[in-house]
Amino acid sequence: MSRFRGARLKKVRSLGSELPGLVRKESRSTNTPGEQGAMRKRRRVSTFRLQLQEKQKIRFNYGLNEKALRRYYSDASRMKGETGVNLLQLIERRLDNVVARGGLAPTIPAARQLVSHGHITVNGRKVSIASYRVKVGDVIGVKEKSRDLKVITDHIAAGSGIGVPSFLEADPQKRMITVKSIPAREDVPIEVSERAVVEFYSK
Rank of each mutant, 00 (worst) to 15 (best):
R28G: 13
S29V: 10
T30Y: 03
N31G: 03
N31A: 14
G34Y: 03
E35H: 12
M39R: 05
R40P: 00
R40V: 04
K41F: 01
R42A: 02
R42I: 05
R42N: 04
R42G: 00
R43H: 00
R43A: 00
R43P: 01
R44M: 01
S46E: 00
T47V: 02
T47I: 01
R49P: 00
R49K: 11
R49N: 03
R49I: 00
L50A: 00
Q51E: 15
L52R: 01
E54N: 14
K55W: 06
K55V: 02
Q56K: 13
K57V: 13
I58V: 15
I58M: 13
I58W: 05
R59T: 09
F60K: 02
F60C: 06
F60M: 07
F60L: 13
N61P: 06
N61R: 06
Y62I: 06
Y62L: 11
G63V: 08
G63L: 09
L64H: 09
L64I: 11
L64G: 07
N65C: 14
E66F: 09
E66H: 12
K67R: 15
A68N: 06
A68Q: 15
R71G: 09
R71D: 14
Y72V: 07
Y72L: 13
Y72N: 00
D75T: 13
D75Q: 15
A76N: 13
S77L: 12
R78P: 00
R78G: 15
R78H: 14
R78A: 14
M79D: 08
G81I: 10
E82P: 00
E82F: 13
T83D: 05
G84W: 10
V85E: 14
N86W: 12
N86P: 08
L87R: 07
I91Q: 07
I91G: 04
E92V: 07
R94S: 06
R94A: 06
R94C: 05
R94M: 11
L95T: 07
N97W: 04
V98S: 05
R101P: 05
G102Q: 02
G102I: 04
G103R: 07
L104E: 04
L104G: 10
P106S: 15
P106Q: 14
P106F: 01
I108R: 11
P109T: 12
A110G: 02
A111R: 10
Q113D: 01
Q113P: 04
V115C: 11
H117P: 04
G118H: 07
H119C: 11
H119Q: 14
I120D: 12
T121S: 01
V122Y: 03
N123Y: 09
N123H: 06
G124L: 08
R125T: 15
K126E: 15
K126P: 08
K126H: 03
V127H: 05
V127E: 10
S131T: 15
S131Q: 15
K135C: 04
K135F: 02
V136W: 02
V139K: 13
V139A: 11
I140P: 01
G141R: 02
